[in-house]
């Protein structure tokens, strides 16, 4: 037990799709819990009712700043966690809650929703709506290696997590517009198609090879931007894809 990392899961204004994604590691979830992760707090899967002191906290959902409880819980999560991971499009970029504008019963004053990075310092991003089980798994294993591993394992984990930490530093907006402004407008797009396959609402097609975004469909999840190899790309890590994939798979055997 002692050499596992402790994990908390704070649920704000999200849909629990991120939680389902975590659970969708299927048998791998059981292995993670057996060996690497001690689930300390997670209202959906565990009984503990209040935020605990943990090594790593996943936060799902954006934060309604008109809801005192949500803001407090988020701040408490920051204070009690060594590493805070924004899990999913809502926590990272606001996602659909960016469109919220209040006025609905029974709490018409619930109007303003912010990605958590606008309220607390966030260490790691896992974008996507829903995020993928494999991405959650990879980050969990890497967080374990970072906190409990050997020197080499720590280095590997640092290299792996670095782009996700930089994504957290970069800011709280990413949607098809960022693909335009930071990739296409910058002359970086080469038409690989990753963005279109990443989009969870089919908002991107390729016309004459280049991405066309239907902005009336885009939900602002940030998957396209972060999946694009021309938004960020780490040779250090990706050139070693074979060894890293093997290490992760071995960890789950």
């Amino acid at each position: 037990m002692a050499d596992k990392i402790t994990l908390g899961y704070t649920h704000l204004s999200g849909c629990t799709g991120c939680t389902v994604a975590l659970a969708d590691n299927y048998a791998g979830l059981l292995t993670l819990l057996d060996r690497y992760v001690d689930l300390k707090y997670m209202p959906t899967l565990a009984d503990v009712r209040h935020v605990q002191k943990v090594d790593v906290s996943f936060v799902e959902g954006s934060c309604c700043i008109n809801d005192k409880l949500a803001v407090e819980e988020l701040k408490e999560t920051r204070e009690k966690s060594t590493v805070v991971v924004a899990l999913g499009g809502c926590a990272c970029y606001g996602n659909i809650t960016r469109f919220s504008r209040g006025g609905q019963q029974n709490q018409p004053q619930h109007e303003a929703y912010l990605p958590i990075g606008d309220i607390i310092k966030v260490d790691v991003y896992i974008p996507g709506c829903a995020p993928t089980p494999q991405m959650i798994r990879n980050v969990a294993v890497m967080a374990y290696l970072l906190l409990k591993g050997t020197k080499e394992q720590k280095e590997l984990a640092t290299a792996f997590l670095k782009p996700l930490m930089m994504a957290a530093q970069r800011g709280t907006t990413a949607c098809f517009c960022e693909l335009m402004t930071e990739v296409i407008n910058q002359g970086l797009c080469m038409g690989c198609g990753s963005c279109a396959s990443a989009c969870p609402v089919n908002a991107i097609t390729h016309e004459y090879g280049k991405p066309q975004g239907e902005r009336d469909l885009c939900i602002k999840c940030g998957a396209c931007y972060n999946q694009c190899p021309r938004s960020w790309f780490s040779f250090d890590v990706v050139e070693n894809y074979e060894a890293i994939n093997e290490a992760i798979m071995a960890a789950l055997q």
Binding site: P131, T132, M135, S197, C199, N226, Q227, P229, F233, V238
Partner: peptide, 22 residues
């Protein structure tokens, strides 16, 4: 192409929008 291979490997290691693909 090489860039497409980079894209494939990125989505295997960082499957942000590529569930169950890698």
């Amino acid at each position: 192409t090489p860039c497409q291979m980079q894209a494939v490997r990125k989505l295997q290691l960082y499957p942000i929008g590529a569930r169950d693909v890698g």
